[in-house]
Write a protein that binds this DNA or RNA. Structure first.
Lengths: 104, 104
DNA sequence: AAACTATATGCGTATATGATCATATAAGGC
DNA sequence: GCCTTATATGATCATATACGCATATAGTTT
């Protein structure tokens, strides 16, 4: 495994390592949304949401589509879905005997 | 998705977002190894390797086994293998037309 | 017990990155 | 052209964390 490849994989994980970005991805699971919609759905500030969307787009996880005044973002890398399933599944197992954070 | 759950998933990704930790996981793909072996394999300092191993163990990704003077670490969460396959596969697609970082 | 080996940890520093505020850019309506 | 709306970005601050050095702990050998 070359150092370059390692750095790229690490970067990919780092992009996924922020709660607000996970919130945004989760909100986009249902389909394409505008920045304003995402601001409303996540409860973040406009500036912060915009920045995180840019981070996700630069990582090629989101696609950006401009239409008039609005910018629409959508999930561009379907492997995200499997990734989340995998991680959530693994963590449910780990926490199965502890408090039911994932339960409800 | 509760904020608690999001924070936990984000934490899981953060643990995987460091090149040295990925190096250690990669080295452990072949099976259990002592800290000294991992120091030799990764080229890191003993202190740094020890710290990263602790981080991975606290995240329940590695199991720790003490035997005499040595401590052996091994992959405890098999979902790691699928995770890496998934991410690497996704990135190969993304980079397929660019420089062959993953090629060789 | 003293010396040695393997591993872990406290501390200081450098760097990265997230949040906020204010402002800039871009596009549409008047 | 001017005003409004939607989004992006520059500057700053606060926080997190990786690394290196030195040292502590645990276990072995003699």
């Amino acid at each position: 495994m070359s150092p370059d490849a390692l750095a790229l994989v690490a970067r990919r994980f780092a992009v996924l390592a922020e709660p607000m970005r996970l919130r945004l991805l989760h909100a986009l699971f249902a389909g394409e949304k505008s920045v304003n919609e995402l601001v409303a759905l996540t409860g973040g500030t406009q500036a912060n949401v915009s920045r995180h969307l840019q981070t996700l787009a630069q990582a090629h996880l989101l696609a950006r589509r401009k239409q008039g005044l609005q910018v629409f973002y959508a999930i561009a890398d379907p492997s995200i879905f499997q990734l989340c399933e995998l991680v959530c599944g693994s963590m449910e197992k780990q926490l199965s005997r502890e408090a039911g954070v994932f339960a409800r």
